[in-house]
Design a binder for these strands. Sequence first.
DNA 1: AATGAATGAGGTTTCATTCAT
DNA 2: TATGAATGAAACCTCATTCAT
Lengths: 210, 210, 210, 210
Amino acid sequence: MNPSSPANLRRLPRQLRSRRRVNRILDAAAQLFAEAGFEAATTNAIAERAGISIGSLYQYFPNKAALFRALCERYERESLAALGAVLTPDLARLEIGEVVERVVAALRQSYGTNPGLLRVLFQGHPAQGQCVPHSSFREAMVHQVDGLLELRWPRLAPDRRRLVAEVCVQAADALFDLALKLEREAAHRAMDELKRLLLGYLEPLDREVA
Amino acid sequence: MNPSSPANLRRLPRQLRSRRRVNRILDAAAQLFAEAGFEAATTNAIAERAGISIGSLYQYFPNKAALFRALCERYERESLAALGAVLTPDLARLEIGEVVERVVAALRQSYGTNPGLLRVLFQGHPAQGQCVPHSSFREAMVHQVDGLLELRWPRLAPDRRRLVAEVCVQAADALFDLALKLEREAAHRAMDELKRLLLGYLEPLDREVA
Amino acid sequence: MNPSSPANLRRLPRQLRSRRRVNRILDAAAQLFAEAGFEAATTNAIAERAGISIGSLYQYFPNKAALFRALCERYERESLAALGAVLTPDLARLEIGEVVERVVAALRQSYGTNPGLLRVLFQGHPAQGQCVPHSSFREAMVHQVDGLLELRWPRLAPDRRRLVAEVCVQAADALFDLALKLEREAAHRAMDELKRLLLGYLEPLDREVA
Amino acid sequence: MNPSSPANLRRLPRQLRSRRRVNRILDAAAQLFAEAGFEAATTNAIAERAGISIGSLYQYFPNKAALFRALCERYERESLAALGAVLTPDLARLEIGEVVERVVAALRQSYGTNPGLLRVLFQGHPAQGQCVPHSSFREAMVHQVDGLLELRWPRLAPDRRRLVAEVCVQAADALFDLALKLEREAAHRAMDELKRLLLGYLEPLDREVA
DNA sequence: AATGAATGAGGTTTCATTCAT
DNA sequence: TATGAATGAAACCTCATTCAT
């Protein structure tokens, strides 16, 4: 229930007030990273948007990258919680369309708050001269979906399963990203297309493996 | 056939030598944007990689953003040419699987040279505090695919057609992006999944509309 | 017998507990100034090492410079006490070699605890844009040695005597500083050289004035 | 004849104008480091005093420490050149007093320009969390003096010779430092004391070893 | 037209000091 | 009185852009 793992924080915020403050910083960071990307979002702007001084920001986060990681982790936790709720034992017996429906609904719930952020989180950011191949956020999502797939098709080869999971996550991310760029009505229709896309991709698997 | 539209260039490069120079700049920019992203790629580094002085770079491009836009346009032209070759009259009579096969092959051809760049071009970049909703590159791709779809399913409603085109482009981009992160063998398999994904998405349309 | 002159303290620490606290702060400051120099030693680090809060530190010392001055004064008192023990009436009749021996022994005693600090104290620190020409610590040492010299050579002209005192102090400081940079054995030999140096400098005075 | 070794410079200043500029920067740095010490002298202030922009400073020196090192090296070269002129074959036959006279005169020549700097150069500065035990400047001086001593007393044990060299350099530095704090007339007399100090220290060696 | 040194606004981060609790 | 979170000025350094040569 902490806003972040200790690794990214200078000090564990024990007081209620501190926890709120950390959350305000993360909210501001989420907005600005989403608006401008990792590089262009400045720590001063984040502090200002959070309504605190730059010094306070650096009391909680040792640097910009740590702030970014903490943000990833917060969204990771939220998304995984939402997906986890879908991962029920009856998953194996449901119609595949129903599964897709539930998963997409779960994701919409997590990304609904700030869909622009999804783009930035997925992208990751260049850490210490080395470009991160998979953001930890992405990795967590893929892992979760891999679990869902295993539950559904226990006999699917792990390699293939992993690839399918990657494709699903990547495609879902892409269409959420698309929806982000459309106005309300069109965004809604884009979600329908996402379901069609996943359904068309997974249905053959159902026939192939089950 | 100019390397760029006039809007992004200071001066139309009429001389052969100038045109070559602009292309060298764009090549260098393509490499560096792909390696480091828009913000982290410095104009000085681009000029150096291009083997010219920073002053010369600014004689051709008024600023970094214009250089980026010119790069987008160049890749737009290249990709559209590749897609255009697929857009033949017999498209309407081909099996849908064959269409997908050809389109993916065409895209692989364009992106194969520098897949990392695709990421950056699609992403667009934050221009003057305003986030670009659709990169011009993306827009051009969607338009082209929209043309393909119209040729195939003339009776499909334009609105729906447009949305389907967007989904295809977005999904294809996403999976190329995925392939970029995998090693050779796995990347190859990812391309197979892309075909499966598009096929599963478009096949129902064939039955629905045709 | 207060730990510091009133000028550097916010409040005279009357309670025993307060006096102990001030001493803990000065101990911590001595360590950190010696380790890192005046600028690099942070007040927060000093407070932490002293086991108190930064707020408490500022209740006793109005700012970092005052803390430094208080530290100088404490070491002044200690060193002067050590030197004072040498300043006995029989000084005039001792062999000069014996005097040097005693003085160096006295100094080793004061500086032995934290030789690194000597460097920092002697150096003084840039106060408000104005470089301190003589640190108060240095000044006190010179004054003390001047007294020793007067006792030994009452007929030496005061001007000359003062200069000789300055030279002795400066040279002694320099060789303590040198010793600080050498390992145990070499440091010990450096102290022998210090005695030779002072002896060679002062012996001619003995013949000249006495 | 370069103002600095390549290691500390971003670009070798080939043009006359550039070389002058680098020297202006080093002059400004010498002043400010002398006035305020390494930490308190800001790169912006140095650039301003040099009459250039901060950007220009960083075109020549990659960071503050490199600027400091370049400064050390410049003074090293100057001092060593001055000392080198003393290192003549007839040194072995001269009276020891004459040798001291010459060496002190050589040093006065180098340090006369900016004696305050000597303090800072000798001190060195904390590089990368590790405190430099001997500044490279100091080391160079000691090495040079060691050479002088070898020429004079070839039969002196190398260990002892090295220690004597260290003592001479450290003591000379200390008295130059002292002179720095006195007004003209007194400073002059301090130099006389330096000669007396060195003479008293070295004369016994002459009797002992020769 | 080409060069590349020069510029300086603005980025991240530190740390002396204050003040509400 | 003690605490330590909050503050914000100011440090170092980068890099898009200009302009004298």
